[in-house]
Design a protein around this nucleic acid. Structure first.
Ligand SMILES: [Mg+2]
Ligand SMILES: [Mg+2]
Length: 1206
DNA sequence: ATGGTAGGGAGATTAT
DNA sequence: ATAATCTCCCTAC
């Protein structure tokens, strides 16, 4: 055994830094924890790869790189049928089995048969000037898409030769072979697969030489070279693996805009380093505080033409002495700043660079500026771990306009990049992923935002400059906190250890690549030849072939054109998004409506992964032809994919078992692992259908979804036809069953029964109960909301679940979402139909009033939409608000926040003094960024009309679509909109099912307790008395059976003044009198509303107004908005609001009602009440309908009412 | 360069 | 004018 490190002749201890040698195992081998790897894709160093990671040195770990040389290409030539005639092979193999033929002579015969093949390949290699190569006949499997490679097991010719020699052409064919595979497989991929490296782990390096500092190609503390990849193996240890801690550094740059060139220049760079971050387990805040080793540093430089503020030198000195080390330095040029920064970064020797949008902004700027300032390569390349002499192309594929290019990524080789922007998009669902918003929602921290235009000014005083520096340091800290908060490192490490790809790729969020590596490892270990990466060359060959097939000679011009059009459309496929390639999940037509009996939600667990297992769907089990969905396999022996799924399921199960016994941190750690396993299993299907995947298998994906559709349909049939239950909806893997029951125990019994019946039909598939809804509003496909029962330690609580409805979407304003939620909670609270409708109506009137009065905060008007492309890339940007806003903000110097995938906030406005253009201008022109609206000199005001008509109305209208007693017109009226525009064309014939109406009674007394009572006066004695509601007094008289009681409540039965003589007609009150008196009181409330004085309560505003004439104002009521809004926070208050009036009128309607209130009663009681009402009803009918009609006009803005009232 | 399809809804554009 | 169609965004699964 050769002792490691001595080959070079350099003694181990000769390192200059003192205690500077890494630990070796007893056998002289080196333990190396691999974190990252890199290879040059072109050039002389092909075949050499660089591994980066950690080695142990005493109690600590140090960075180390490993240069792996002499990796060989590995190509397979697929022999033609004639080379190994199958009957001969079978005979020979049988003879070997029967010991009639020795294995040696069998191999001899094989080689004899393959001699032509070998000669042909040799010829090809010689033509490429390949001087040394080896060939071997090996048995390999194939199961993928190349039509020129037979499926199944066969002997193939394996060819190894150095990477320095050129690859064999991918489309190479010969007389004795039909194809070559693997000709462009990269050295790094071969290394990872052959060494079976499953992500970051300890490797054993048994034979290496140590590179002396002068020989080094990396910036690592240590560097070794190995001459063959085979000296590296995965270390298997019995003890629990100890993952070394990582050095994690957060970087944040502050930049100014160079107006001339429209580029960013760096004025400040902050780094925050966490020297001992655990990578395999989450690190909660307290632990980080207790045991974290931190350091930080900022370097600033003054912009050209500005000096430093007076006393700045002293300020810096003070800060440094206070910290006991250099934490702040200042330079006089960007170049000096960069040099300082790169030196600091080199000292830190970071494993991970973290930052918010660091891959889309900071890194790019850093390298662009290093290049522009002519920073030496020996300096800027310290950003990574590999020494470099020339800057790669930084502007790679700018098609997306965001994310790091290949050039940038190659610069940081050896360090991992954790962009908390990208990570949070993957791990969280948020309206916005800006550092400011994430800090608030995730860390509960307020972040100070500095506009890029304000930065130059901040160099004017020490105070503001310190502020700028602290902002940079805080941003670095926030980003680091986010990374820990989201457990980014442990989660991505788990994912990487499952799949065996590079950790850096997982951090970039490349899900397809993760699955690809998992499959590569799996199929490689089972001796399969792997599908090649689709190179540009093969794509061209394929498409030209297709063209040949489609366009033979002799077509007329028209047909050729059509052909080209067809060919052209998908040929954009590398750019334009394609339509769906195959059918997906089945979505059942919902039985819309409001359900007030229990609804069961049943859902198959991991449907697609389970289907793969259940039906044994795999590359290896299913013969696939060009078109059409393949058939299910007959084979019972599980394919590779199903076995892999089974493995994932079983290890997840074991993790979950362990979890049950753990708590706290350990539980958390296991939960992350469990999640990672599930994520991997669930991603598998998506990658089968991903056309750029090496394992793209549309037929398999299609077969899986087809099975899914059939399973769902079968389940529906079973539940409906055999169990006689009502299925009201279902999506892909779920069904919702309307039980029609109020008894939870009965519902649970049904649940158990259904689950049992469904599950006994399948081997792997399992349906389960995902929830029980007490009430449910089913609006459309993928849009519903429900009161879900939650069973928490013995107790049940209720909780509103919303799916797909406008309130869960970021592209509606908070205002409409809040109103939507309010309406939803009213609808789902179980009140009677009219109560709900009335509550909604009055809520709308209230909010309308508040909006008109400027009482609604500006933030509530913000709509957020994401850019799917860089804003310039939109062909028709004019009509799109978010694109317009992004373009304008970019022009104003904002370099971050308005790129592809960023979310853009905007408010729809109108220009002050330009009311006419409010509605005529396109919506794109009227959109403004909140900052634009807020700014002092803004001429833009919130377009209240837009929000009423286009934000609130549609949202509420959709929620109320299934609610009786209201309509889009009514809702429009409440919002002060012209109802005629919202008239439904299908004349109310949309059969509203009465069975789905709200049936619950709530206390009306409670609802109307703030209203004035209805007081009637006796014409005879002039005594006034308050009237209770007709139905309640009738009900009371029936239940008490005490006719003797003399009170106001008997009035409605007798229609006589309770104070006057019971006999005779003196105290009798006629229907006309009732109607008149009610009218008079209504008029009183109306005029009270009219007299309402509008007053702005902000002293500085001094805006007082009396609404002069409603008729002149029309339905807009613009005058009630404080003209200073939104700059004035003053409120225009109305003493008696429209909502108050509405409620009052509704109360009178309620009192006089002899219809709706009855519907809430039990049938038995109702008959009695009906009987008792026979006299009363005709007497109050006129009054009741008058009150109703006035109430209904209430929402018109009182235009018609004024006519009546005057 | 960075899994899938189904589907609702807004708004602009084009066809009838 | 009104309806069909397309593009864009976001969501459910
Ligand atoms: Mg499911
Ligand atoms: Mg589901």
């Amino acid at each position: 055994m050769v002792k490691g490190g001595t080959e070079n002749g350099a003694p181990l201890s000769s390192n200059c830094e003192g205690q500077t040698e890494f630990d070796l195992d007893a056998d002289g081998s080196l333990r190396f924890y691999i974190l990252d790897a890199y290879e040059e894709a072109f050039g002389a160093s092909m075949g050499t790869i660089y591994l980066f990671g950690k080695v142990k040195m005493g109690d600590t770990y140090k960075s180390c790189s490993v240069v792996v040389k002499n990796i060989q290409r590995c190509v397979y030539a697929i022999p033609n049928d004639s080379v190994f005639p199958s009957h001969e092979l079978i005979t020979l193999e049988q003879e070997v089995k029967d010991s009639k033929l020795s294995p040696e002579s069998f191999r001899g015969k094989l080689h004899e048969m393959a001699s032509n093949l070998k000669n042909e390949i040799s010829q090809q290699l010689l033509q490429l000037n390949v001087s040394s190569y080896s060939m071997a006949l090996v048995k390999r499997n194939y199961a993928f898409e190349r039509p020129d490679v037979p499926v199944g097991e066969q002997y193939v010719l394996k060819i190894n030769y150095p990477f320095k020699d050129p690859p064999l052409p991918e489309d190479l064919k010969g007389e004795s072979f039909s194809a070559v595979l693997g000709s462009n497989t990269s050295a790094l991929e071969l290394f990872i697969l052959k060494r079976k490296i499953m992500g970051p782990s300890w490797l054993k390096i048994s034979n290496f030489s140590t590179n002396s500092p002068s020989q080094r190609v990396s910036w690592c503390k240590f560097e070794v070279t190995v001459e063959s990849p085979k000296v590296i193996t995965v270390l298997v240890s019995e003890e629990k693996v100890v993952h070394p801690p990582a050095v994690v550094t957060a970087i944040n740059l502050k930049t100014i805009v160079n107006e001339k060139q429209n580029i960013s220049e760096i004025v400040s760079a902050s780094v925050l380093c966490f020297h001992n971050a655990k990578i395999d387990v989450p690190m909660p805040g307290p632990e980080r505080k207790r045991s974290g080793i931190l350091s930080h540093f900022t370097v600033v430089r003054n912009p050209e033409g500005t000096g430093y503020p007076i006393g700045w030198k002293k300020e810096v000195a003070d800060r440094n002495s206070k910290n006991g080390c250099s934490v702040l330095s200042f330079e006089n040029s960007e170049r000096a700043l960069l040099n300082r920064l790169f030196l600091e970064l080199n000292k830190l020797d970071s494993d991970v660079l973290v930052g918010h949008n660091i891959s889309g902004f900071d890194l790019d700027v850093l390298l662009q500026r290093a290049q522009a300032c002519k920073v030496l390569s020996s300096m800027w390349s310290k950003i990574g771990r590999l020494k470099r002499s020339s800057m790669p192309k930084l502007k790679g594929n700018t098609n997306y306009g965001s994310g790091a290019t290949l050039g940038i990524m190659s610069c940081i080789a050896g360090r991992l990049l954790c962009d908390t922007d990208l990570c949070s998009r993957d791990l969280l669902k948020q309206v916005s992923y800006s550092l400011t918003d994430l800090s608030k929602t995730q860390l509960n921290r307020d972040r100070k935002e500095i506009s890029p235009n304000d930065i130059p000014k901040m160099f004017q005083s020490s105070k503001t400059l310190v502020e700028l520096i602290e902002c940079g340091e805080t941003d670095a800290w926030l980003s680091m906190e986010l990374m820990f908060h989201l457990s980014v490192l442990p989660l991505t490490l788990q994912l990487t250890n499952i799949s065996g790809n590079l950790w850096g790729k997982t951090l970039q969020g490349a899900r397809a690549q993760r699955i690809e590596y998992y499959l590569l490892h799996t199929f490689h270990s089972k001796k399969y030849i792997l599908p090649d990466k689709n190179s540009q060359r093969m794509k061209e060959i394929k498409s030209s072939k297709r063209r040949m097939n489609h366009g033979p000679e002799g077509h007329n011009v028209d047909e050729l054109d059509a052909d080209l059009a067809l060919e052209n459309d998908p040929s954009k496929d590398n750019k334009a998004k394609k339509g769906p390639a195959y059918a997906g999940g089945l979505v059942l037509e919902p039985k819309k409506g409001l359900y007030d009996k229990y609804v069961l939600l049943l859902d198959f667990n991991s449907l697609y992964p389970s289907i793969i297992q259940e039906y044994n769907i795999c590359f290896t089990t299913i013969p696939r032809s060009e078109d059409g969905v393949p058939r299910l396999p007959s084979s019972q022996t599980p394919g590779i994919l199903p076995k892999l799924m089974e493995h994932l399921v079983s290890i997840r199960k074991s993790v979950k078992l362990k979890m049950a016994k753990e708590t706290g941190l350990k539980y958390w750690e296991l939960d992350i692992r469990q999640q990672a396993i599930k994520l991997t299993a669930n991603s598998m299907y998506g990658c089968l259908g991903f056309s750029n995947s090496r394992f793209y298998a549309k037929p398999l994906a299609e077969l899986i979804t087809l099975q899914g559709r059939e399973i769902l349909q079968r389940t529906v049939d079973l539940v409906q036809n055999h169990l006689n239950l009502e299925v009201i909806y279902g999506d892909t893997d779920s069904i919702m069953i309307h039980s029609g029951l109020d008894d939870i125990e009965e519902v649970k019994a049904i649940k158990t029964k259904v689950i049992q019946e469904v599950n006994k039909k399948y081997r792997c598939l399992k349906i389960d109960c995902d929830g029980i809804y007490k009430r449910m509003l089913l609006l459309r496909k993928k849009k519903y909301a429900a009161v879900k029962l939650q069973f928490k330690d013995g107790k049940t609580c209720e909780d509103i679940e919303r799916k797909g409805v406008d309130m869960v979407r970021r592209d509606w304003s908070l205002l409409s979402k809040e109103i939507g939620d309010l309406c939803l909670s009213k609808i789902l609270c179980g009140g009677s139909c009219e109560d709900v409708v009335e509550a909604i109506h009055s809520e709308l009137m209230k909010i309308k009033e508040e909006m008109r009065n400027g009482k609604v905060a500006l933030e509530k008007y913000v709509i957020t939409k994401a850019l799917t492309k860089s804003p310039e890339a939109y062909p028709d940007s004019k009509s799109q608000p978010h694109v317009q806003v992004a373009l304008r903000m970019r022009q104003r110097g904002y370099k971050e926040g308005f790129n592809a995938k960023d979310t853009v906030p905007y408010i729809i406005c109108y220009e002050q003094g330009n009311t006419s253009s409010a509605s005529s201008a396109g919506i794109g022109e009227r959109a403004r960024h909140p900052d634009e609206v807020k700014s002092e000199d803004s001429r833009w005001l919130v377009d209240i009309d837009y929000y009423l008509a286009q934000q609130i109305h549609p949202v509420v209208s959709r929620l109320c679509a299934e609610i009786q007693g209201t309509s889009p017109e009514r809702l429009a009226e409440c919002l002060g909109l012209d109802p005629s525009k919202y008239r439904s064309r299908s004349n109310d014939a949309t059969g509203s099912d009465p069975s789905t109406a709200l049936l619950f009674a709530t206390s009306d007394e409670e609802r109307y307790k703030s209203c004035e009572p209805l007081a009637l006066a006796c014409p005879n004695c002039s005594a006034a008395f308050n009237c209770p509601s007709i139905t309640s007094s009738v009900y009371a008289s029936i239940s008490k059976k005490s006719e003797t009681e003399e009170s106001d409540s008997t009035f409605w039965l007798k229609l006589q003044c309770p104070k006057c003589e019971p006999e005779g007609s003196t105290g009798r009150i006629s229907p006309a009198m009732i109607s008149n008196q009610v009218k008079r009181q209504i008029d009183g409330f109306v005029s009270m509303y009219y007299k309402g004085i509008m007053m702005c309560d902000d002293e500085s505003c001094k805006h007082t107004t009396r609404i002069p004439n409603f008729r002149l104002l029309g339905d807009r009521e613009r005058g009630t908005v404080c003209p200073n809004y939104p700059n004035c926070n003053g409120t225009l208050l109305r003493k008696y609001t429209e909502a108050d009036l509405y409620k009052q009128l509704s109360y009178f309607c309620h009192i006089l009602d002899t219809q709706c209130n009855l519907e809430k009663m039990d049938v038995g009681v109702r008959i009695q009440v009906e009987k008792a009402l026979t006299k009363t009803r005709p007497a109050v009918q006129a009054a009741a309908s008058m009150a109703r009609s006035i109430r209904d006009r209430c929402a018109y803005g009182w235009l018609q009412l004024t006519d009546i009232a005057i």
